[in-house]
Nucleic acid binder design. Structure first.
Lengths: 340, 340
DNA sequence: AGTTTCATTCTAAACGATTAGATTTCTAAA
DNA sequence: TTTAGAAATCTAATCGTTTAGAATGAAACT
């Protein structure tokens, strides 16, 4: 494999001069520059970034830690993040924890060993995992994405969507359409996003002066369709059905939709339905929902991280938290057509 | 940042001995081992993998190049690949080309510079991109995933799904249900998968002795829902509707489903529908389809690559092509309930 | 005691770049 | 023709590991 020495030998200049032209330093004569460049081209030389990284202790690589790429939330986020990384000449490691804290810990250790320049953590539970400290100790900046610990330490940053506002938008949409008896289906409250969504729901219902009956809030230990289906079956057994159902995420809504359809219930005629996430396929079942701007979240996380690395062209955000405003997406499932 | 020298100093041994215990070489005395290990723990030392990579010219990193993470095909593949990489102590770079050959080329150059140990290419058009040569020149093995150039060179490998067989399964399923007039909706033929699916369709119809009318094959320049919708509108204008529609991928089928539903057509009563891909959300519209085993594809690609790197515990496949057998998934859209 | 053997441990040279600081070459004024 | 000063280039140290091969010391054998 070719090294800088080969280029030096071929072009008749020293490695220092070759290095200078490779790095575009303005101290070389036009003649040298030309000869060296043609030697590089002729040999097909590519600088070894490993050696370079060792010398200037900077790897130009970032990492994104996710729970499960397969969760439809992530691809958009990854896309956004990867794109800003790419534009700034960074490569990105994708780390999938499969929701296993041990694996997350090991991944973080590996990333430290690799001396990545920064990492985005898009996995965390509310309780702080102590292995984030190790990143700090090793001077590697990190930003939380979407979920975060309750308390941000001095060096910690957060990019997310305003989950409480998302709930608020969903509820207001329903109340504007005249629904009063609204059931809320929650995901696990130990996840930051679901906690906020839950709070947003309660707050808005309260603000609207609407009571929330005891059986009008259902909790799940996950946020998958299956849980949605199971809850839907429970709801079908209710004496009095709610007028509208607000699912804290679209997957739950998918499950509800499926089960209701099988049971012969019509949406929105018999019961209105709204989700939250704007899953890539939500339009297939005409699900009204709220869009948290996943791609933007990824992009912002990238920008904050690069800002922390003092990359030119990227303004370091002095804000510790960047909260994106979600957008309401109105489709048929909420009954806007019928009622407006 | 801590180095091996710090550990050497602290423990009173030389860097060579420290290195030996870090790497678990069986040449150190128990006493040395113990003292060094406790020094490591106390300091919180982590070997610098960059330096290590430089020395033994091996980075323990792989890359996966994809067109668009957001395409629902990829997450499963990535998941599978990442998992076998992880189990073998490799990290993976995710490279998104956004379907831009220039970007792919630049990515490959970057990866060479980074001296990744191997790469999975899950993007390629049928015509060979000459920048793959550069990987070979630099001794970096690569395997094609899902799509491949017509001709595999000596050093090239391929992992994919049997797309022709997938079409065959779909068609046979339809013919077994008694459908004879089947319309085929194709994706772009310059993509390997769609070419094979198309061939499989023609071959099977021929084998069954079924004629394929001129207006019973529709081509699209992409494979998105929108194209499916547009074709569906065209079909609605036909004098004679087909009995069944076989879409070369689920996204197209989503479009057809949507448009037909809006037009008041019933599936499968008025026309049967089957897709190909088993998209994560296909069950939402009860779409019968064929499942190409994406996760397995990712896993296999990882195994082949690691095999090429002569990793222990992974048998290097001497096969140049690994073709996974797709599975038929029967749901309501093909009318199996009604007709069986 | 003097050798030989063996198990440990160490010294120092890589790996392929970057970069101070030294050295050479060039330019132009005296 | 000299020579100061600038411009171009070079030498060599360095980044943090790994790993030959040398050195050390203890045990075992004459």
């Amino acid at each position: 494999m070719l090294t800088i020495k080969d280029v030096a030998k071929k072009s008749g200049f020293s490695v220092a001069t070759v290095s200078a032209v490779v790095n575009g330093l303005p101290v070389v004569s036009p003649k040298a520059k030309e000869q060296i460049q043609s030697a590089i081209k002729e040999l097909g030389y590519r600088p070894n970034r490993v050696a370079r990284s060792l010398k200037n202790s900077k790897t130009s690589s970032l990492a994104m830690i996710v729970r499960d790429v397969t969760n439809p939330f992530y691809p958009e986020v990854i896309m956004g993040f990867e794109d800003v990384a790419w534009s700034n000449n960074y490569e990105v490691f994708l780390c999938n924890t499969e929701n296993n804290p041990e694996r997350e810990k090991k991944y973080i250790d590996n990333l430290i060993g690799r001396r990545v320049d920064g990492v985005v953590i898009a996995t965390s539970f509310i309780q702080r995992e102590n292995h984030y400290d190790r990143l700090l100790e090793n001077g590697i900046p990190y930003v939380f994405l979407n979920r975060r610990p309750e308390q941000l330490l001095d060096h910690e940053y957060f990019v997310g969507s305003d989950n409480a506002a998302a709930s608020e938008k969903a509820v207001l949409h329903l109340t504007e359409l005249g629904y009063k008896d609204i059931l809320y289906m929650s995901g696990p409250l130990n996840l930051y996003t679901f906690k906020k969504r839950y709070e947003g729901f309660l707050r808005t219902m309260d603000k609207m002066g609407l009571p929330v009956g005891e059986d009008r809030i259902l909790f799940s230990s996950d946020f998958m369709e299956k849980s949605g289906s199971e809850h839907a079956k429970r709801i079908l057994g209710y004496e009095k059905m709610p007028e509208a159902i607000f699912c804290s995420n679209d997957l739950l809504a998918f499950g509800v939709h499926q089960t209701f359809k099988e049971a012969g219930m019509r949406i929105p005629e018999d019961v209105a339905l709204i989700g939250l996430d704007n899953n890539r396929y939500s339009h297939l079942i005409d699900l009204s929902t709220v869009e948290p701007q996943n791609n933007q979240m990824g992009r912002k996380a990238g920008e904050v991280l690069l800002g922390l690395l003092k990359i030119k062209d990227v303004i370091a955000h002095e804000q510790k938290e960047i909260i994106l405003e979600p957008r309401l997406i109105i489709r048929k499932s909420s009954g806007a057509d019928a009622r407006s």
